[in-house]
């Protein structure tokens, strides 16, 4: 009976909407589906770090290994491969590159690439740099921001400060671009 109730259409009494579903920081799915993600181990790492209580539950589930065992059995019966793709952006390494490029005779600009590998909205980032350094800053390519001014060295402090997930070690200094 409880099951039947579960699938019934219409708002449920005593529930406040909208419901906040907890999504995994690795695979982005509701955490109950992490076990189906090809990089489940990375999901677990994320869970352990961010939602230790949920991680404990997962560990218990893993030991009884019912999900996998049962699934393997069923897999034989079904056609198709049922391969779940990982996200595309996982393919490239996560790295931000900064470099200095000349502009005119005396001035230079700073080029920042790779912010989108950290899922950062480039428009927001460009605006932030502009405000922070009080200069022009714009999105100039697929994953490129140009800041008007030589602020390359400052970026090593500013970027990790603004986006804590980007450690200084993830920022690569490409030096000066030649003319």
């Amino acid at each position: 009976m409880a099951e039947e109730n579960r699938l019934r259409i219409g708002p449920k009494e005593g529930v406040t909407y909208p419901i906040q579903v907890v999504y995994c920081g690795n695979c982005t799915m509701p955490i109950e589906y992490c076990e189906y993600y090809p990089e489940y181990d990375r999901c677990k790492q994320w869970l352990e770090k961010n939602l230790p209580r949920e991680f404990e539950k997962v560990k218990i589930g893993d030991n009884s290994d019912t999900a996998i065992g049962e699934e393997e059995k069923k897999r034989q019966k079904r056609g198709g491969k049922g391969i779940i793709k990982t996200k595309k952006k996982e393919e490239g390494p996560k790295q931000v590159c900064v470099s200095r490029a000349p502009r005119g005779k005396k001035k230079s600009v700073t080029v920042v690439t790779g912010l989108s590998t950290f899922d950062i909205d480039l428009k927001v980032a460009a605006k932030f740099f502009g405000q922070r350094f009080a200069c022009g800053s714009s999105v100039t390519g697929d994953d490129e921001i140009v800041i008007q001014g030589d602020v390359k060295d400052d970026l090593f402090d500013v970027i990790p400060e603004k986006w804590s997930e980007i450690d200084e070690d993830f920022i690569e200094d490409l030096g000066d671009q030649k003319r």
Binding site: L7, Y17, Y36, E71, K74, R75, G82
Partner: peptide
């Protein structure tokens, strides 16, 4: 997910999950 009540729901068995998640 925020308002899960407004569509009729159909439940698949466990074995089908991976296929659905692969787009089948």
């Amino acid at each position: 997910h925020k308002y899960p009540f407004f569509l009729p729901m159909q439940q698949v068995d466990k074995g089908a999950i991976r296929f659905v998640l692969s787009g089948a």
